[in-house]
Design a protein around this nucleic acid. Structure first.
Lengths: 225, 225
DNA sequence: CCTTACACCTGAACGTGTTCAAACCTGTCT
DNA sequence: AGACAGGTTTGAACACGTTCAGGTGTAAGG
């Protein structure tokens, strides 16, 4: 009686490990949950975990990738449901925060790599480029649909800059210990407002020299960090 | 013939360990240099290193504290020697970059803690509060002597904000792999210019709503991150 | 039915940061 | 001199992430 289940045994095992890991991470934090614990909870030997995940960090990465996939529809409807640039921006980031609310400890492990760019798990690394580009595409769309007029020279840099803003908001939210992450919530609100105001101002002739400098900074940062 | 040297034996040993560690960090990076290597190079047993330094990270911290002390006079004269706010701001940060140029690998270990605030070595932690306050005092002085008029409500937040800018610049510099860290140098130049322009603009009546929002963000961030 | 191949899994072993009970000085008091 | 105290030093031991030489099961080919 071999099960006709389409999910292969391997897939099942890798999921068992991932789920065991996430549960332990949530319960006791990333550092306290050992690979031996994880494997044991999943009912396999330690080595099995490494057969499916290259490292402890890679488990977090797998979680993040799955989460990213699952969030796509919610992002789509959040953006569509929000009127105007500022609301769309806020809505997109809100989707992520809401999704991750039970897993802040897990995300913390990802984000502590900082902006290393060498570290495979860093949001800036080559390994996370695909997911990063996917996010940036959303911001491009928000800019288009948000109905904000923006100078030609600035436009190509904006999706990346908004992604950067998003990372900052998530970072702050992950570290925020205020009840219900209220502080991070307020920061998102204010941040979105400020970003929007800045974009509106960016068109004024007076701001041209400043804009040129800011654009050069963006190019500099994109260079490798 | 006991040496009348005022440095006690303990102090000598702790220095031996610190120097051995720094040399190894520079040669092979923070991660590759093991505590056993360090102790061995210093001519002591592994445990001795832990008698003087609570952790491997703490060695880096000791280096940073010593460096900070040693830099104070250079900062003083750099600020005094530069005319105007923008130049002073740039000069102060330049002193640090120049001082750390041989030890970027060491600093990298410090900064990878990110903005954790729980982690003892983070620039945002309670353990580094003294050093942080010292830096902020410098920025307060730069603001006073730089001859920039700034709105009353914004003023108290500015030294902290400039410190934040400094940390960003150092962070980028540490991660920057461009030859001679040229990119980070350019970023510092542009960043200082942008900051200065923003401060000049901050007085304009038109920017009042934006300023209020920015101030609230600063208060939010200072809250715990 | 046996052989082969290979995906899957095992658990001992390695190198790491860190801890700690015990040993070793070195100066002081009796 | 001997005993004591306490700062300093030792090196084995621990727990962790990770590796790896091998074991196990299963499906295909003969």
């Amino acid at each position: 009686m071999t099960t006709p289940n389409p999910t292969s045994k391997a897939e099942e095992t890798s999921l068992k490990i991932l789920d065991a890991a996430l549960e332990l991470f949530r319960e006791q934090g990333f550092d306290s949950a050992t690979m031996r614990d994880i494997a044991s909870k999943a009912g396999v030997a330690t080595g099995a975990a490494y057969y499916y995940y290259a490292s402890k960090d890679a488990i977090v990465m797998a979680f993040y990738e799955r989460a990213w996939q699952e969030m796509q529809p919610a992002i789509e409807s959040a953006i569509a449901g929000a009127k105007g640039f500022e609301a769309k921006l806020r809505a997109m980031i809100r989707v992520k925060l809401d999704y991750f609310v039970a897993n802040r400890a897990v995300l913390r492990a990802l984000l502590r790599t900082g902006a290393d760019a060498q570290h495979p798990l860093s949001p800036f690394s080559a390994d996370t480029a695909a997911i990063r580009e996917g996010d940036i595409a959303w911001f491009r769309r928000i800019l288009e649909e948000g109905g904000i007029r923006v100078p030609r020279d600035l436009a190509p840099h904006l999706p990346g800059a908004l992604w950067f803003f998003q990372m900052g908001a998530i970072y702050f939210w992950v570290m925020d210990d205020s009840p219900n992450q209220a502080r991070a919530g307020r920061l998102l609100q204010l941040g979105a407002k400020i970003v929007t105001s800045l974009l509106r101002m960016a068109g004024l002739p007076l701001t041209r020299p400043m804009r040129k400098a800011v654009i050069e900074v963006m190019e500099l940062v994109r260079g490798d960090a």
